[in-house]
Design a protein around this nucleic acid. Structure first.
Lengths: 213, 213, 213, 213
DNA sequence: TATGAATGAGGCTTCATTCAT
DNA sequence: AATGAATGAAGCCTCATTCAT
């Protein structure tokens, strides 16, 4: 193996480990709650020393932020995949967006909690900025598509972000519901309920017929 | 003043102080974030000693839980007021419920965070149970009213809790939106947007006309 | 014992403990070197818990700074004592100043090291300012006296601080010498040597006779 | 290029690199303070890997010690140069010695701090011994010259080391003064002051005329 | 030989809770 | 009952040193 190969192999391993740390951290955060998870626990889960974590991330906060960025980047992939395909069906996008958001509710709930904790903090401001940039870009994608549908007369003619955020809100609420120990007890027919919600989500900004209530 | 009066005065003062602690704690939790607020800060805000807090509450967790219960009890009051009045208008209830939930979003967001932290903990299981009982009762009130509307043919004939939870989810999402530093930047017309959301909330489970999309 | 007495007793105890911590910390710093002394070691030496230290001092740095301030305040006492007495003999002052500085060389050496470490740090800037104020005041006392001697024609007519700092430098060097493991080996006749130094110190800024070399 | 040349070239490079490490380390120690400088920082400054440092020096302490030895060796050069020259003027030596000491006060202050830290440590006893040997040799040079001057009746007839150490002390104090953030503020006329000090240094052990104060 | 990823002991600090007064 | 000093477990992070490649 050449030196060059060795070096790139090392770099690759390093990246892989970074990914590993993020993945394990996410799992632990979800299952134990981010407050109960110590850096040492993450290190143990990955099978490395505490200090090694700090070769990859400056602080524990950075791990959290990187996790959030990763999520937002995955979301960006959803859009990229759609745009790459010839078929720019907006309904398809709405569905993909929703299913992405609802796909791993525990994970989303984690990021929701982290949002509150980290956004107010001064540590890693550049990462927060980075996160927000990706999100802004994702927002742009969504609003562009919604605007098309509005101009087609399919959706109520309100600012595009009204639709986007209404959808966001419903999805967000659905995720929270999914999590609440308490509310879960009442929902016998999960599939039925979430279908009901999805249907609402799809219909909710539609242009109203004059004879609607 | 008789001894009896003195005693009851003392009891009264004790209660008042308890209320005071809860109130100040809530304010601090909301403004600084529950993690950054120490028991000492609460004591200082109330103007008492740290030890005194522990005469009223066994642990810091108990304070949080009591705060959540208090919230749920206030919600119960909304229903009681409605039931006491002759007017059992369901639309009115929906509106009151929403406005209660949306009224103090920061507060609701706090309880949302606490929910996750405390529900998994074993620290005060009886209080958690208590909390859930009140909630269950509130749920019953809501579903009862929704069921009436369904039988009147106003709402889609799905399990009543579908409607309740859909409403809950939308309100929850709206609150989250209200908080997110990031998403806030995009919403220029707040009033317009939240009106839009409320309208969706009111319509969302309505029986569909056949010619709706 | 009245409540008032109890309270003042408590305050007194608290002060005493603070003094105790400072004293023990100083001893440990001198004997082990400030870097090797942990907060826990100090706590153990005082016979209290680690956390208790932090009721008295915000950081380890603060302990160091307070130690330096204490030293400078003691030096201020030397001047106060002289000024209170009717006898404002400048020679007496010079002697007192020197003997104070040389009295506990290990201690002075400690502060000399701390000076470098803490003055460049941003932690506790107000304490650093405080320290420098006391020093400035002490400097003023010294220069005032030196100015008198200059005007009496006893000392060379250069800015007063030339004399003060020359004295300071010699005393400082003497302290360092006193400490150096290496140089100590060469000095057999300590008393003789330090007398020699003191004599130099006293004479060193004197007005030169014309027939001096 | 022959193999032999290659080998010696390698050895030369190795030496040069060692010198490079020492030089960069010294610069960093002076500008950032020895505590804040990590081995990694030194490696980065030199442009090599951290591990490579340990091919040249066993520990970080060794780097410090080697730096001190280097200093003392340079001082030895001062004497050698003098002895090599025909002119064994003692005044010239005193001046050279002073100017060497005062030439790079920051550097000297560094070694002064290191002295305390390393001398008490057991980490590299043989290097400490080495350091002290060179110093002892330098001391011998100095005392020999001073003894000459005493026998010439130019200096007070006290043990020669009295004069040497007095000079050392004054120079040492001057260096410290030079550094103190605080005292610096008071010294407007630096050149004037240090000339004043130098003059004192030259005169200070002179035989006194009987009519001196 | 050069490298730099990995290590883990150890330091500083926080804070919920206890308890003697 | 009220207090607040005392506690110490626990967390985050640093960095000199090692070692496999």
């Amino acid at each position: 193996m050449s030196d060059l190969q060795k070096v790139s192999q090392k770099t690759l391993d390093f990246r892989r480990r970074e990914e590993d740390i993020l993945q394990r951290a996410q799992e632990l955060f979800i299952s134990h709650g981010e407050d109960k998870v110590t850096v040492e626990m993450i290190a143990d889960a990955v099978g490395i020393g505490k200090g090694t974590i700090y070769k990859h991330f400056e602080t524990k906060d950075e791990i959290c932020l990187r996790l959030m960025i990763r999520y937002e980047e995955e979301l960006a992939q959803v859009f990229i995949r759609l745009v790459d395909g010839e078929d720019k069906d907006s309904a398809r996008l709405a569905k993909d967006y929703f299913s992405f958001r609802m796909n791993d509710p525990e994970r989303y709930a984690l990021f929701d909690r982290l949002e509150h904790k980290l956004t107010n903090t001064t540590s890693c401001p550049e990462l927060v900025k980075n996160l927000h940039e990706i999100r802004a870009s994702n927002m742009d994608q969504l609003t562009a598509i919604v605007e098309t549908r509005i101009s087609e007369g399919k959706l109520q003619d309100v600012p595009a972000y009204f639709h986007v955020f209404a959808a966001w809100a419903l999805a967000h609420g659905a995720v929270a519901l999914y999590h609440s120990k308490f509310y879960q007890e009442f929902i016998d027919d999960k599939d039925g309920f979430f279908d009901f919600l999805a249907e609402i989500g799809i219909r909710m900004g539609n242009k109203r017929n004059k004879d609607d209530d």
